[in-house]
Design a protein around this nucleic acid. Structure first.
Lengths: 341, 341
DNA sequence: TTGTAAGCGTTATCAA
DNA sequence: TTGATAACGCTTACAA
């Protein structure tokens, strides 16, 4: 059994309140009693009971975290980031996986609120289109933070990347390496993040005075099978693309598989660019160029936004936009500089 | 603000204890009052305050989980497994990463015990050789469960695979496909799990009346660089191996990289077998044969062992041994059946 | 069948 | 500078 504050008081023949004050070095406490308390506390290895503390303080010191899937490397890193700052502040995190399902996400928010978390950090499930469960959280005055996949309609702190700009950079990189017909392998039509990346794709093309071609835009359902199929479809065109920009590394790798199956050389026949900088990008052959999103830092930032909100509940909600970095790898063709230029 | 049990009592003009009993359908409660309580509780969406409950019951309903790294796919799956049964029992899990460091593992156990978890589920850090911090946990009567990487010296419930048998199966598979000179790419000398796999390697060889050759045993420090170097060393021999059994997929992939760099064909010149069934095994070329360990099921089982221990603290500790499965893939040569046999 | 009171371990308020 | 008391929200003897 752990030693309690009461027990310290009993042994020292003083009242629990005095012990409590000594432990928190309250201004009006005799230095002698304070010393005595601290000494005994150390001797007996006193640890305040967090359960009692939590009840008293009406908080749990837990942060709920809802992500689509912790086995996605992006989220594994983001969680580490969140955890690192939570631990530092004496908080624990409770991780829930929505598995991209709206129903599970709703269930997760319910379970987190009944377990009285002090805040919730979320990256939206792919299927979520209704935000009632998040409004409930806000209404209960529980700080709610989004990261990566956010809900634009809700006024909460959030940390995201500029998906438009990131995609624009990625596609510009392809253009600069000499690609002319760049296809985009996007997600489902309704996915915000995917649409933003399509927008960036358009922007890149137009900034180089290129005409966007609607027949080079492919929507898959985020499954590898469908990415594979869409890639095969691309290759049926009379003039096949000379580059593919996929909105995630997983999709890009499925595309690579399809390209290889058709005997195409990457990057000589076709360049490929992914998104996320997943560890597999260095395993696949050729190594996959991609967009790095610093998920660990995003997680840290999200946690920091939570603590800021906790401290200043009425401060306006910040939207933090993280920089991204293009990672050039062997899946990208190298521009042959023409000697005349 | 959430409605409390007291509030229900006040509104119904009965005592809190009666409300509490009604909610728990205590035998001696008038069915009318019970109905009334339940009705109001539903109307006001009463949720018992877990903080109060925890203090009263002297438990946190949290399970601490310490793993080397959640971004290892094996642990990501294992955690999902643990979580799935924890949630079902109304428990939350608090995840800590030791990052393979002994010091961090000690710090993790400290932080978990001061936050008063009801149990701890651990897979040992690579560097851990002293188990004092775990003895402290046991002494505090906190259930302690090991999974995957266990501590043999401690009498606790555990869920593991039979590493000797798994390695024996893996190496037998190589032998059956016609490999003669099988090298093993093992971890550091002190790692229990790695040594067990070496033992299985010996057993497989001797069961086929083959002589084990010490010059085919390579110890790397678990880093990819060192796996790469060790593989290059193998190739300096007068007679190079015709198969490599690596004790993890990560090491196997580093080996593949080295083999390719030296212009060797896999599996024609040399077969490769990994361990873990990491998702990258299907990305690397050729796809990597490996040993599947069902980490999700291991996690579930570990959590179940925890709840069993919680219920029956004095029951003898179970050791659950999970079956493994050899996954054959293209990195394995196919045996040319000689027509005379 | 129900109510009263004590207690889980802490802190905050008030009084001394 | 310290102590007594109440309170956080719940359960559980014990009493009625």
């Amino acid at each position: 059994m752990q030693v309690t504050l009461k027990e310290l008081a009993r042994r020292l023949n003083i009242s629990p309140s005095t012990v409590s004050r000594a432990l928190h070095d309250h201004p009006k406490i005799a230095s002698t009693t304070k010393a005595a308390v601290l000494k005994l506390a150390r001797e007996l290895d006193f640890q305040p009971n967090p359960l009692a503390l939590n009840l008293r303080m009406q908080r749990s010191k837990n942060i709920g975290v809802i992500v689509p899937k912790i086995s996605y490397p992006f989220y594994a890193s983001a969680i580490s980031g969140i955890e690192s700052v939570a631990i530092r502040e004496g908080y624990n995190i409770i991780i829930c996986q929505s598995e991209e399902s709206y129903e599970r996400e709703v269930a997760n928010t319910k379970s987190l609120t009944t377990s009285r978390v002090d805040g919730v950090i979320v990256s939206l499930a792919g299927q979520t289109k209704d935000y009632g469960h998040f409004k409930d959280i806000l209404q209960k005055k529980i700080p709610l933070i989004f990261f990566n996949r956010e809900c634009e309609a809700l006024d909460t702190p959030k940390v995201v990347i500029d998906n438009v700009e990131a995609a624009q950079k990625a596609v510009s990189t392809l253009i600069q390496s000499g690609c002319e017909r760049i296809a985009i392998l996007a997600g489902p039509q309704a996915i915000h993040i995917s649409n933003q990346r399509i927008e960036g794709y358009y922007k890149a093309l137009s900034s180089y005075d290129k005409q966007a071609r609607h027949d080079l835009i492919f929507h898959c359902d985020y499954s590898e099978d469908s990415a594979y199929q869409n890639t095969l479809d691309m290759l049926k065109k009379s003039e096949i693309p000379d580059a593919i920009f996929a909105v995630s590394d997983r999709l890009a790798i499925a595309a690579i598989r399809a390209l290889k199956a058709k005997g195409l050389n990457i990057p000589n026949d076709i360049s490929v660019m992914g998104f996320n900088n997943d560890p597999v990008t260095t395993i696949v052959e050729p190594q996959l160029a991609t967009v790095d999103q610093t998920p660990y830092l995003m997680g840290q930032k999200a946690a920091e936004l939570f603590f800021y909100k906790l401290e200043k509940p009425d401060a306006p909600s910040q939207k933090v936009v993280m920089p991204v970095q293009i990672i050039k790898r062997a899946s990208l063709r190298v521009l042959q500089k023409s000697p005349t230029n």
